[in-house]
Design a protein around this nucleic acid. Structure first.
Lengths: 240, 240
DNA sequence: AAAATACATATTGTCTACAGCAAAGTTTTG
DNA sequence: CAAAACTTTGCTGTAGACAATATGTATTTT
């Protein structure tokens, strides 16, 4: 790896991405250009370029003359996510198994090591970020510029949703994390073996694990009757 | 429709999109910031924002310290396109049939009228742009922010590929256009009827029509049928 | 003569200052 | 007292000037 000194602008982009993914910047939060520019030691024009790029990646939404907002998440977001995720994940994983290079496989293994460390540490953010990285690498392996945009978009909200619900102190969580990590190892093995069918199946299974966990929070066990009103998503006002 | 006066910046974005789609700006072409800024009567900082946004949409690629380039198209691009297109098109069309609103259906019908006019006029660019618009509207109907990014990406290259090969003076072309336009009418009917299964099937059929046309150019006839005439499709050259 | 280096030029990247728009607060009027 | 119009304030949007980087060319050295 070349250790090229990342510019302030690059650091800014990466840090904002991280803060959105970990919900340090909450969905719907409004961003102040001047404040951010000062924070990252750059002036407003390049910062505005950063925001435009992050909009393209799906991290923020820009409103003309009214500033930038961290991409909101609504009930509809979750519904659409459930529709798109299994299809894209399966397709991308299949392609990854077909096209992965040895260098990419090594990279995936390294990422998996970090993922397991993050689980052990109990740090929810690290766990979420390394999980996101793991699946991003699989996306890179698929090497399809037409599927990558949707995959990126899915991983952003998948990570944020995971951050919302994850709590390493719960027993059930530890169990889910262990299962997820084992599935990651299987991903690596199947991709390395070039077994596209099995990899695609595993992607669906991996998704089902995540889906079940999400649904257990979205639909509380006590309220499954038609009378129960779904909890509101909370107001859109952001962090100060 | 409200006739809000579009800003110079918005005009710039729309014009650049149009020029990329119609190959007035060829794939791989390099763009000069200063020149573009003067052309659209704005200064470089906002123009750079425009380029960053267009990168996010997949129209251009930015190279650090080395300027912007119209998104290139390679052999791999075509291969990846063939993999992703049928899946995304089918999924989006299915969702469109499930979620389309009356206003959107009216919008789609208007677009179809313009599409038929463009075919009749024999203007390749107008035909391509209205076809792109038609399928973008179907994308809007699907109302899924996770599939839209990939759909947009596909439509860009689908439009550019279409522009490359389309020639309204060829008999076969006119036939394909007529079939495509008829399929569009069927799209409208099926979406209006909410027939998701049939709509998804039609999306695949519509794709097959386009695929066959593209392949007839990419694969020279002499290879398809050894006794056939020499290819007259012209070379595959992309950028200058 | 060929290769490497230094320079010149053109283009990208950035900053400061100003202009424009929107929302909130204040005043005025029915 | 309420409602509407105006003013004020703070942010976003833009322009022009400057700095840094890359590329092409010319020169020098081996």
């Amino acid at each position: 790896m070349n250790a090229e000194p990342r510019s302030k602008k690059t650091q800014c982009i990466e840090d904002l991405r991280r803060k959105v993914l970990t919900q340090i910047l909450e969905p719907g939060a409004y961003l102040d250009e001047t404040e951010l520019a000062e924070t990252y030691g750059i002036s407003r024009p390049p910062l505005r370029e950063v925001l435009r790029q992050l909009q393209g990646e799906g991290y923020v939404v820009l409103h003309e003359n009214r500033g930038a907002q961290v991409a909101p998440m609504s009930h509809k977001t979750l519904r659409n996510f459930f529709v798109a995720a299994p299809m894209i994940y399966a397709a991308v994983t299949r392609l990854a198994a077909e096209h992965a290079t040895p260098a990419q496989i090594a990279w995936l293994k390294d990422t998996q090591v970090s993922f397991r460390k993050a689980i052990a540490s109990g740090n929810a953010s690290d766990r979420a970020l390394w999980n996101q990285r793991f699946h991003s690498v699989i996306g890179e392996m698929a090497d399809n510029e037409f599927l990558m945009p949707s995959l990126r978009r899915l991983l952003i909200d998948h990570t944020r949703i995971g951050m919302t619900f994850y709590n390493p102190r719960k027993e059930a969580m530890a169990c889910v994390s262990a299962t997820a990590a084992d599935q990651h190892d299987t991903f690596i093995a199947l991709i390395e073996a070039g077994d596209a069918d099995a990899a695609a199946d595993l992607a669906v299974a991996h998704w089902e694990l995540s889906r079940a966990q999400i649904e257990s929070f979205v639909t509380p066990p006590s309220i499954q009757s038609p009378l129960g009103r779904a909890p509101e998503a909370g107001d859109q006002r952001g962090a100060a």
